[in-house]
Design a protein around this nucleic acid. Sequence first.
DNA 1: CCTCCAAAAAATGTGCACATTTGCTGCGCC
DNA 2: GGCGCAGCAAATGTGCACATTTTTTGGAGG
Lengths: 251, 251
Amino acid sequence: MTTQRGRNDKRSGKGLGKANPAEDEAVYQAILHALLEGKLKAGAKLAEPPLAEIFGVSRERIRKVLHRLGAERRLEMIPNRGARVPRPTLDDVRSVYEAHRVLEAGVLTQLVRHVDDALIERLNTHLAEERAAATRGDRAASVRLSGAFHVHLVEALGNAELSRFLADLLSRSSVMVSVYEPATDSICAVDEHGAIVEALRARDVARAIAVSREHFLHVESRLHLDDDAAPASEDLTAVFAARRPKRRKAR
Amino acid sequence: MTTQRGRNDKRSGKGLGKANPAEDEAVYQAILHALLEGKLKAGAKLAEPPLAEIFGVSRERIRKVLHRLGAERRLEMIPNRGARVPRPTLDDVRSVYEAHRVLEAGVLTQLVRHVDDALIERLNTHLAEERAAATRGDRAASVRLSGAFHVHLVEALGNAELSRFLADLLSRSSVMVSVYEPATDSICAVDEHGAIVEALRARDVARAIAVSREHFLHVESRLHLDDDAAPASEDLTAVFAARRPKRRKAR
DNA sequence: CCTCCAAAAAATGTGCACATTTGCTGCGCC
DNA sequence: GGCGCAGCAAATGTGCACATTTTTTGGAGG
């Protein structure tokens, strides 16, 4: 039976089985970036054919990336119905913040056992950067440095698992910012970060945790549903503009 | 160039695009189970063709599952070189245990704020089960219940993110047990679990964390490299025996 | 005008045939 | 006898042609 199919075609092996891992990564990074930057609307559908066209790669390439993002819980995959940008509920967001808060409590508990002057100094250097960014009104840098502070804390433990958890939480919460925008420009207050460092320096676990807890509750309380605030584009072509040559015959 | 492909063949659409999500899941679960049970040797290669033959599914099916397990860091994927069972170093194991310890410290900190009689009662019920299993010498149940205790703790917070982190850590550590066997049958001592519950009941954060910490350090100290202790089978056919009919022509 | 249903269109899922790469074996050469 | 390299076998990676869904469309009936 097996239908000896007649060696149908075989284009001049141009870019066929060409192993190009970098291309996968490029598409992955592009979509991930768009997600993290909040350029994609919350419930938006990410269909394979258009993306394949936009990036100029095969549909399978796109498919693989989409499923990967789904496995990382960055996209919502529904069998036979494709990928969508998740639309987190307010409880989902609170859940992420709470997880971060709980995790940091554990980190601080462990950290007071290992504080040394070098660590305090590194943290203070970071605080100075944060203050500088806040002073000159650089909002983008402030957001970035604010998250980086917590990363510094967990990385001080040198535990890859914990660092990964935090990175996971942070990336998830940055996606959510596009929906539940944390108010105006009042990101993590630098003072609160400073208070954490101060408590660490004093080896005062209870106070460090208390400050950290207040800090997070403070941020959480600012969450509010900001429906129309997200101008995230609807059509994918605009979002991923100029990512790939999009091989048209012209040119 | 564009290769007018000549509609080569088309077998009698037997079971071609047959959507069968359950089959993916079955293969995934089978391999995951073998991994968690420690039935797979530490550095073993998991090649696609043999697995496809064993499970009686297409190679793509296997491939997808393998990559998924790789994304979950349960398998070590090397481009163009396939999947291998990871060979964790002693530091890797310590890292997992430390992460668990830190995480639980945070969980306990948060938990003392929400303890109520119902929770204490549930935990005590669980402790009774653990003691019963220990008394009747049921090692399998003891191991399972011992892990379940920590799951109970984190689930008491009702935070999906944190629960997922713990599940991740637990599944990772159970794989490692096959290499660094935690001594004889001295798993988590029930007494230490009881002491945690007792501290919780008393709303004594510091003591709960201290006990938990001691508990984990206790377990960690028992880790040792047990080279020859793992009789994990080498050939895959034996490991996955009788999983799938392995459709031979003979009915 | 809305609802419901059938047919068409589009999108997702999967097996297969290759291309490419890796691993291995054996033969020649130093 | 060992070392290196050419050739071969096996395994991985990828595009493509379908099958199978899902979604949209269009029209008949209430």
